[in-house]
């Protein structure tokens, strides 16, 4: 089925991995959901190139990265507003392009105020073995993705299937208004968690008013947040229970931890709140030192947020003629 190599990694960057929408089915084996940190951006990149939404693409942590294109390929780079090039010309983001053999796609690693992770989808999808129901890389477990590791110079990114009518898709752009509310200092909406009895009566409000920062202890498992200490009214020793990305845990030191894609599936710290799924993709675009706020909302608002999110995912894609010419012309 494989159609051979689509890209050669020239510069692998800090943390470039194969990811998809994760492996929910393996939670019961103690395996994290994993998958893309910014699920929306990968979803959009896949749609832009005509892939199924659960197809695997590349997650690229903001750094200098370069790929050489090895066969004619429809590509789309989404996520962080990163400085990126198609040969010598700026690469249009959230846009389908048709790249030719010998072309170089490079990311300069420079961000414009915000952004942490970019997603590169290739028409046909990335060919790596499915492990426990997913092609995503589980780095600490060293499985999934490309041999369970980050991509390095010299690696070949194999393509899975023949794409459908590639020319029709070139030039498609994802409308800016149909994306999560990305930006600097985001306000992440959360609903109250189940262990309010462990916290002071005004703990949630205090958390919401705090100027929070992503600490240096931040990775694909979770972000420890600086800037506020949550008041724990008593020592809450909980038996380990199921948790999920978005959960805000409070360890005994009161420093909240926001669980992200590779969070372990069980945890024993009290949960003060849960960031709604759409805003977790916004959180995925934060790096250590970035500011954020947490905003308490009710369940209805969280469901409405999901409804909008579903609407954005289904946004109609129409090729823009000017963009299409650019997308075909290359740099």
């Amino acid at each position: 089925m494989s159609r051979g190599p689509g890209l050669r990694v020239v510069t692998g960057g800090l943390l470039t991995t194969v990811q998809d929408q994760g492996r929910l089915g393996a939670l019961r084996y103690g395996v994290p959901r994993g998958g893309a940190m910014d699920r929306f951006a990968l979803y959009a990149a896949n749609r832009l190139v005509g892939n199924a939404p659960d197809e695997a693409g590349l997650e690229i942590l903001a750094s200098e990265v370069c790929f050489e294109v090895l066969q004619p390929s429809l590509l789309a780079l989404t996520g962080a507003p990163i400085e990126a090039y198609w040969n010598d010309a700026p690469l249009p983001l959230w846009t389908t392009i048709l790249a030719r053999p010998g072309d170089h796609i490079s990311l300069a690693g420079k961000r414009h105020g915000w952004g942490a992770r970019s997603y590169l989808a290739l028409a046909g999808g990335v060919e790596v073995p499915v492990v426990l129901g997913s092609r995503g890389t589980h780095l600490s477990g060293r499985f999934g993705g490309l041999a369970g590791r980050v991509l390095r110079a010299g690696d070949l990114v194999m393509l899975r299937e023949q794409p459908n009518d590639p020319l029709r898709r070139a030039g498609q752009a994802w409308p800016a208004e149909a994306r999560p509310p990305y930006g600097p200092k985001p306000s992440l909406r959360f609903t109250a968690g189940p262990h309010q009895h462990c916290f002071g009566a005004t703990s949630s409000e205090a958390l919401a008013q705090a100027e929070l920062r992503v600490s240096d202890h931040a990775n694909r498992m979770g972000y420890r947040l600086d800037g506020h200490t949550v008041e724990l009214t008593r020592l809450c020793s909980l038996p380990s229970l199921g948790v999920l990305p978005g959960v805000i845990q409070v360890p005994p030191d009161g420093k909240p931890v926001l669980l992200m894609a590779d969070a372990q599936p069980t945890g024993g710290y009290p949960i003060i709140g849960v960031v709604c799924a759409p805003d977790l993709d916004v959180a995925a675009q934060l790096l250590p030192g970035d500011s954020l706020q947490l905003k308490p909302i009710g369940e209805d608002e969280a469901i409405e947020a999901r409804r909008n999110y579903a609407r954005w995912k289904a946004t109609p894609l129409e090729p823009d003629d000017t963009v299409a010419q650019l997308a075909l012309a290359g740099g």
Partner: peptide, 22 residues
């Protein structure tokens, strides 16, 4: 219903709220 995950003394059920109400 997406997945049901049992733990020592708890059960977590993940679901799609646009498809099934709480």
């Amino acid at each position: 219903i997406e997945v049901a995950l049992p733990a020592w003394a708890s059960l977590m059920v993940l679901f799609d709220p646009l498809c099934l109400t709480r």
